[in-house]
Simulated scan of single mutants.
Amino acid sequence: MIRGIGIDICDIERMKKALSRGGFAERVFSPAEIDYAGEGEAAAAHFAAAFAAREALAKAGGWGLASIGLGACEVLRSESGPAFNFSGEFRRRLEERGVKRVFLSITHEAGVAAAVVVLEGD
């Protein structure tokens, strides 16, 4: 059963501006996300996609990003696609809501990054 669906977009140029402020990436993203994004033009798109994923997760659960907290999850990439890695505390919150699986899809094109999250439970 679907427990929630969330979608979000993030302007890549706006993310570039945020990244130009010292320490922004370190406050918002995990070391693994920073490593994946790298540097240069593509970095802002990767960061924007990870940020949109957090927002989409917050919307899917009806929590709001401030309620989740920036350290509750990170977006990891693998050969099978992007996925969340959750903190233990946030994983418990998902279990309390009956969420068994979390699906994530991200994309970036034409100056915008987007993410969709689906929460599935029994």
Rank of each mutant, 00 (worst) to 15 (best):
Met1Trp: 00
Met1Lys: 00
Met1Thr: 00
Ile2Ala: 02
Arg3Ala: 10
Arg3Gln: 13
Arg3Trp: 03
Gly4Asp: 03
Asp8Thr: 08
Asp8Glu: 12
Cys10Ile: 00
Cys10Ser: 06
Cys10Lys: 02
Cys10Trp: 00
Cys10Phe: 01
Ile12Leu: 08
Ile12Lys: 05
Ile12Cys: 07
Glu13Arg: 10
Glu13Leu: 10
Glu13Ile: 06
Arg14His: 07
Met15Pro: 14
Met15Ser: 11
Met15Trp: 07
Leu19Tyr: 05
Ser20Asp: 03
Ser20Ile: 00
Arg21Ser: 13
Gly22Ile: 07
Gly22Thr: 12
Gly23Ala: 01
Gly23Asp: 03
Phe24Asp: 08
Ala25His: 07
Ala25Thr: 01
Glu26Gly: 09
Arg27Tyr: 05
Arg27Asp: 08
Arg27Pro: 10
Val28Trp: 03
Phe29Thr: 01
Ser30Gln: 04
Pro31Asp: 09
Ala32Val: 04
Ala32Glu: 06
Glu33Ile: 02
Asp35Glu: 11
Asp35Tyr: 02
Tyr36His: 07
Tyr36Asn: 05
Gly38Pro: 03
Gly38Phe: 01
Glu41Thr: 05
Ala42Leu: 03
Ala42Pro: 06
Ala44Asn: 02
Ala45Thr: 00
Ala45Ile: 00
Phe47Thr: 04
Phe47Lys: 04
Phe47Leu: 04
Ala48Val: 03
Ala49Lys: 04
Ala50Gly: 03
Phe51Ala: 05
Phe51Pro: 05
Ala52Phe: 01
Ala53Tyr: 01
Ala53Trp: 01
Glu55Trp: 02
Ala60Asn: 12
Ala60Glu: 12
Gly61Trp: 01
Gly61Cys: 04
Gly61Thr: 01
Trp63Asn: 12
Ile68Gln: 14
Ile68Pro: 13
Gly69Lys: 06
Gly69Arg: 06
Gly69Cys: 07
Leu70Glu: 13
Gly71Ala: 10
Gly71Thr: 10
Gly71Glu: 11
Cys73Val: 04
Glu74His: 10
Leu76Cys: 13
Arg77Pro: 12
Arg77Asp: 11
Ser80Ala: 15
Ser80Pro: 15
Ala83Ile: 11
Phe84Cys: 12
Asn85Glu: 15
Phe86Gly: 10
Gly88Val: 07
Gly88Leu: 09
Gly88Asn: 13
Gly88Met: 07
Glu89Phe: 12
Phe90Met: 09
Arg92His: 14
Arg92Thr: 14
Leu94Val: 08
Leu94Asp: 13
Leu94Cys: 12
Leu94Thr: 09
Glu95Ile: 14
Glu96His: 01
Glu96Arg: 03
Arg97Lys: 15
Gly98Cys: 13
Val99Trp: 02
Lys100Gly: 13
Arg101Val: 10
Val102Arg: 05
Val102Asn: 06
Val102Glu: 05
Val102Gly: 06
Phe103Leu: 15
Phe103Asn: 14
Leu104Trp: 02
Thr107Ile: 04
Glu109Asp: 14
Ala110Thr: 07
Ala110Gln: 10
Ala110Tyr: 05
Gly111Val: 08
Gly111Met: 11
Val112Cys: 14
Val112Arg: 11
Ala114Asn: 04
Ala115Gln: 00
Ala115Trp: 00
Val116Ile: 10
Val117Leu: 05
Val117Ile: 07
Val118His: 10
Val118Tyr: 09
Leu119Ser: 13
Leu119Asp: 11
Leu119Trp: 06
Glu120Asp: 08
Gly121Asp: 06
Gly121Thr: 02
Gly121Cys: 04
Asp122Trp: 08
